[in-house]
């Protein structure tokens, strides 16, 4: 167990370093001189030189990288080139809405996926199974932006639900209403994968010895499925849902952009297209770190749940 966690941490470190390098690189490749940009349009040559010194742009690159890491550790991610706000502040604004959106999508998509998956596994080979699997493969194949476009056009356009951004936090009525369409959009691409995972996992468990024993004891098929099948199948499913946060993240960048949802993903896209490198760097950094932490957490929980993991490498 401890070894497993240590192992996961070991993997996370180079990933973190990689993320930091990308973040650092982003600040290096600015097409226009960062000192000139941050000095503003009315700056003189002397101003720019002063800022260059102040930003440490004259130092060797490895030292700059080291300093960059130190700054990041102190949560100093620099200032946005456009708004001149601290990047950390900007992320503070956007982190909440993104987490909210992911939560609201997971909360309905994961149970629905598990339900459909176990239904398919129980009726393995029947038309229900085939229908659910067909639906789920469609779910994996549909571009998330298409679902969003259709929802905006037909549900939003009919005046049924708001779609023009976040009207408040999740626990207020206005906030709740405004999150429905984005969460439906984002969650809908998640149901399919979860259903497929559950089905495969259930089929494996249902074929296991202890389930056969349970059946032999004369338990009803439903009880067997629920008590032995689902419960044991859920461990890998829950883990995989955690690991699929990356998949969800991909969808959330698109969903946020479409629904004017003020989250990290939309900020990242906006920062990249407007060449606001410090902000882009901060957004990518926070997305990667968030993803890493969730992965790590899920992994640790999994290791706790499943005793077999203890010794196996990865």
């Amino acid at each position: 167990m401890a070894r497993h966690i240590a192992h996961r941490l070991m993997i996370s470190l180079p990933v973190l370093l990689g993320v930091l390098m990308i973040g650092f690189l982003l600040l290096q490749v600015v097409p226009t001189d960062p000192a000139t940009v941050s000095a503003g349009p009315s700056a003189t040559k002397a101003d720019i030189a002063a800022i260059r010194l102040q930003m440490g742009l004259d130092q060797p690159i490895w030292l700059q990288f080291f300093k960059y890491i130190t700054r990041v550790l102190q949560l100093d991610l620099g200032r946005s080139m456009i708004s001149n706000r601290a990047v950390v502040d900007e992320i503070g604004f956007t982190l909440g809405p993104t987490v909210e959106l992911m939560f609201a999508s997971l909360i309905w998509a994961a149970p629905l996926g598990i339900l459909l998956g176990s239904l398919a596994a129980r009726r393995h080979g029947s038309w229900i199974d085939r229908a659910i699997m067909a639906l789920s493969v469609m779910g994996v194949s549909v571009p998330v932006f298409w679902i969003g476009l259709m929802l905006i056009q037909h549900v939003g356009g009919a005046g049924l639900l708001p779609f023009q951004g976040r009207d408040g936090p999740l626990w207020t009525l206005a906030g709740l209403k405004s999150i429905v369409l984005p969460a439906v959009t984002l969650g809908s691409v998640f149901v399919g994968p979860v259903a497929r995972m559950t089905r495969t996992s259930m089929l494996e468990t249902l074929a296991a010895d202890y389930v056969r024993t349970a059946r032999a004891k004369g338990l009803t098929e439903w009880k067997v499925t629920m008590h032995h099948g689902l419960r044991n199948a859920l461990i890998p499913v829950v883990t995989l849902i955690g690991l699929q946060i990356g998949f969800l993240l991909g969808g959330s960048v698109v969903t946020e952009t479409m629904f004017a949802w003020p989250g990290v993903g939309r900020m990242a896209v906006g920062a990249i297209t407007s060449s606001d490198f410090p902000l882009a760097q901060g957004a990518i950094l926070i997305l990667a770190i968030g993803f890493l932490s969730v992965n790590l957490l899920v992994d640790v929980i999994y290791a706790g749940l499943d005793p077999r993991i203890g010794s196996a490498g990865g």
Binding site: G156, G157, A158, G159, Q164, G165, M258, F259, A260
Partner: peptide, 17 residues
């Protein structure tokens, strides 16, 4: 003052709000 970058969303919002 709300930012809605998507043209289509802005128009639909005007028609419904």
């Amino acid at each position: 003052w709300k930012i809605i970058p998507e043209e289509n969303t802005r128009v639909t919002a005007l028609q419904t709000d």
